[in-house]
Structures are given as C-alpha cells and as structure tokens.
C-alpha cells in the first residue's frame, strides 16, 4: 500500500445486497465488490484466476465466493484459492465505506 494510491468511489453501499457481490468497472479493469452479512466490504479482481469468468457473477456464502464457471472457491477477504480447480490467489484491494459510499484503493 502506498501513500500515492488513490481512493476511488465504486458504488453506494445500499446498491450492494448483504452477502453478495457486485461488479465494478474502472478504467480497463473489472473489480468484484463484496458485502458481508455483517456489513464489511471487500474488493478483489473480478476475473477468476482459473479460466475466464466474472467472479462477480458468482455465489457468495459467508466470506467465500464460488466462481460460476467451474466452482473454484476463494476467500474474498484474502483472495486465497480454497479448492480446485482454482489454485492461484485473487488480487485484493483495500476498501472502505464513507457516508454510504464504497471506496476502493487503487495503487
């Protein structure tokens, strides 16, 4: 994390259902923005590290997301790949909520 990294507004928190994920496109990249049942917010890359699929189309349960294509699971808090066929970690980004808006730190 660097001081020069910028916080960018991604979406309103109330647009994001609890225990769910939403896609956010910024520049040429897609990000997956997660909201847990207890209202914490996490952000990862949106493209599965196994084969091309949007993680934001996946299935959220607790703090894991399952890729909709081949059911590879990730812990979206850390990006860790939890089961085959996923084996490489998803990149994660810092996120925060201010005045009802989700901000993502992009380095």
């Amino acid at each position: 994390m660097t001081d020069t990294a910028t916080w960018v507004a991604a979406c309103k928190l109330n647009e994001l259902p609890k225990e769910d994920v939403k896609r956010w496109d910024h520049g040429s990249k897609s990000f997956a923005v997660f909201r847990t049942a207890d209202d914490r917010v996490f952000v990862t890359d949106d493209i599965c590290t196994h084969e091309y699929a949007h993680i934001s189309d996946g299935f959220v349960m607790g703090t894991t997301v399952e890729c909709p294509r081949h059911a590879g699971c990730f812990d979206f808090r850390t990006g860790e790949a939890l089961n085959p066929p996923a084996c490489n970690r998803l990149k994660t980004y810092s996120a925060k909520v201010e005045n009802g808006t989700v901000f993502v730190q992009i380095g």
């Binding site: 699929a53 949007h54 189309d57 996946g58 890729c67 909709p68 294509r69």
Partner: peptide, 12 residues
C-alpha cells in the same frame, strides 16, 4: 444460459 444466472441458480 448465462454463467451468472445458471451458476447461481444451480448452486442455490
């Protein structure tokens, strides 16, 4: 159909 709807629907 789409990955999003089919993936989620089948998982549920």
């Amino acid at each position: 159909g789409s990955l999003r709807e089919v993936g989620r629907g089948v998982r549920f």
